[in-house]
């Protein structure tokens, strides 16, 4: 696990694709979100969204293989708190994933598909940048009101 602090409020963390590192990711993000001025409630939302993004990468992009990098780049400026999460795993087509009608989804006892729904519900903006064979990036943004 590597952590780096750069100029202009840019902070970085690289972990291996192991679920045992999720707590480090949460500590890193919650510390920075709190420092930026978010309320405890908003800090919890941002932290959960980033956990969901990393969990999806471990499960789907890396298919639970545990020795691949996940790179988090946190950029906090003006009122914008942006976390870019990059992996080099299987490319992902965000358009192919239709967000479920959650009421219908849970009534049919489906157990998956909650992660993306949570990310979209918890953050102000979720963007994907996919460069097949190079890297996948998801950018989560929350604005400080």
């Amino acid at each position: 696990m590597k952590q780096k602090t750069g100029s202009n409020n840019l902070k970085e963390l690289t972990i291996k694709s192991k679920t045992s590192y999720l707590n480090k990711v949460r500590d890193f993000v919650s510390h920075e979100a709190k420092k930026f001025g978010f309320s405890d409630d908003e800090v919890s939302k941002i932290t959960l969204a980033v956990d969901e993004a990393c969990t999806n990468i471990i499960k789907h992009a890396y298919k639970n293989a545990s020795d691949y990098p996940i790179h988090l780049r946190l950029n906090a400026r003006n009122n914008t708190f942006e976390i870019m999460i990059e992996d080099q795993g299987m490319p992902f087509e965000p358009e192919s994933v239709k967000l479920p009608d959650m009421k219908e989804h849970i009534r049919s006892y489906k157990r998956g598909g909650f992660g993306m729904y949570l990310m979209k519900s918890l953050m102000d903006k979720v963007e994907y940048k996919i460069q097949p064979g190079i890297k996948n990036s998801v950018i989560l943004t929350k604005y400080l009101q």
């Binding site: 959960l48 969901e52 969990t55 006892y109 489906k110 157990r111 998956g112 909650f114 992660g115």
Partner: peptide, 16 residues
């Protein structure tokens, strides 16, 4: 103290 969707998925897996 904390729950993510992975935890919620466990309840969904067994409730039926």
């Amino acid at each position: 103290s904390y729950i993510s969707s992975a935890g919620l998925g466990v309840f969904m897996a067994f409730v039926e």
